[in-house]
Design a protein around this nucleic acid. Sequence first.
DNA 1: ACAAGTTGTGCAAACGTTTTAACAATGACA
DNA 2: TGTCATTGTTAAAACGTTTGCACAACTTGT
Lengths: 345, 345
Amino acid sequence: MSVTIKDVARRAGVSPSTVSRVLSNHPRISAATARKVREIMEEMGYHPNLMAKSLVSKTTKSICVILPKPAEELFLNLFFMELIRGIVAQAARSGYDVLISSGANESEEVEAVARLVNGRRVDGAVLLYSRKDDPVVEFLQERKFPFVLVGRSERHPDILSVDTDNVQAAYDAARHLISLGHERIGFVGGPPNMVVSIDRMEGYRRALEEAGLPFRRDWVVEGEFLQDSGYRAMSLLMNLPERPSGMLVVDDFVTFGVIRGLNELGYKIPGDLSIVSFNNLALAELSSPPISSVDIGIYHLGYTASQTLIRWIEASPEERTPVRHIIPHRLIVRESSLYAPGGKA
Amino acid sequence: MSVTIKDVARRAGVSPSTVSRVLSNHPRISAATARKVREIMEEMGYHPNLMAKSLVSKTTKSICVILPKPAEELFLNLFFMELIRGIVAQAARSGYDVLISSGANESEEVEAVARLVNGRRVDGAVLLYSRKDDPVVEFLQERKFPFVLVGRSERHPDILSVDTDNVQAAYDAARHLISLGHERIGFVGGPPNMVVSIDRMEGYRRALEEAGLPFRRDWVVEGEFLQDSGYRAMSLLMNLPERPSGMLVVDDFVTFGVIRGLNELGYKIPGDLSIVSFNNLALAELSSPPISSVDIGIYHLGYTASQTLIRWIEASPEERTPVRHIIPHRLIVRESSLYAPGGKA
DNA sequence: ACAAGTTGTGCAAACGTTTTAACAATGACA
DNA sequence: TGTCATTGTTAAAACGTTTGCACAACTTGT
């Protein structure tokens, strides 16, 4: 049907091998032949069949990204999309295509990635935010299949990964509240099986400890990455006899819930409660009041993940050495944490 | 390296063709052979090489989705992600993989899709929200390459597409405001070269006309899909000598800007101004006040797009008939449009 | 017991590339 | 003038499948 390398060869009066060599800029092709062949390719509208190429080269020039289960946690969409954009942009620069895969649950996720890996359809995989023991990680690890983790694996520290220093990020955020004069600081976390939740909680703890402030279990609420989580957390916290004056909240979406809860209860932000959040999604800026949030460079995270993975894929086995990239974060201070406790400026 | 159909054949004492037939459930394979071959496949960990398969079948079992230029319009991320989820979910059900592609600008977009199409790397494409003349549409149309448009093409009405009836949606939204008693209704639109903007404006116009209300050019502001757009629109509108009491806003993100603007100017919603928005992104619910918004079933849109495309791909040429699917929309009324003009309940 | 179908399997070509090894032609060197 | 290296090209095998055709071995029906 469509024009192949043989057609071009015939028309140019050379062998298919020669055409192939022209395509790959082989050094031992005469300038004259090269020019002629290229002309004919143009004229005939030739485009190499990537499948055939893949078959012989055993390489697909594509990577996949595994989307964690969607379901309720729609909120992460903003995060993922930004990440994917980074990944796609970098991959395109390196001449790679990106496949998106997902599953309705963990075992479907493994199935989906297994299909791609076993079918040799991709050369590598990007895994997004992993839980503590991720079956996909296990699977790929065992197969020795190239992959990079956006996030961190507790169990496998010696893995290709790109991450935020969440401990430090939370530490910085807490320090910010402390430096404003807050002494009663609470924390609204995410799912306790996610590394990101654990790390942010740890940074929070350290900052308190270092400042000699109390780490109170009743000021720490774990939940999900949902706004409802934030809402419920507030109902709980604000009913305590002794309440925090500052809060760290694990994600901007959750913060939305927190703010809604506080509004309903009649509290003012930042007057009655100062809030610092994480991720700096578009929402943080849009909120009223705008939310102080730690920007973790999501696009950059994706971009670097893709780059790291592709470098690994293209490196010879002996050059391959597991590396962990930390993408710098930056606290963006907005209205939600402008005042000292009690509403003083 | 990895185990092929030949290895399995040898071990099972049959020919490769037989193994291949077992794989495809050919009717003329004896139950005994089939069982045996399957056993061996399992035992040896055989998985078919999809590239080789593609090469001979001239089919890749994958589709691509073309992401419009990213840049500033990050806000659309929520929209796209939801759409992609729908597409990926359906594609997976049909055994298809999904490639994401994008370009920094229009010509790069064409290049990106050309690479995939020319390289026979995908069997079809999903195009997201198109401008009035989309070069990618032209390209695919000319190549007779299967694709489905999420949205509508003015120039090519006879195209496979999945869409919202945006005229009707805007009409419904306007009717809602009218039924609340509003007689001065304004409109904040999107980029004037996007079909969606045009259609929503048209629905707005029709509802006004039908109700005998004035369509005033100075109450219509066109802009971009950015919150700043909404913010600026408000500065303009609220400085007019005669101001609208109700607004239709083309997207929830823009509405965020509108609300921020109104807040700063000291207006109350819905007391001073009632607002109805479109798309019902997660934000609409999170906003304070929560925004009335027309839910257009984005996931469903993606799901149907994928389904439509794949059906087309798998149909024989004579069965192929361009179809235009309209996904139903639904106005979700929230606080932002609870009152009649002047704040009466 | 024979023709005609049916059932199960194998051979070999095809899909569109890349790549190794071989070879012819040319030029350089002594 | 013969050897040797260099340069440009090709033939053919390989990558891992699918599939049309042929064929043998059974079933049927008569």
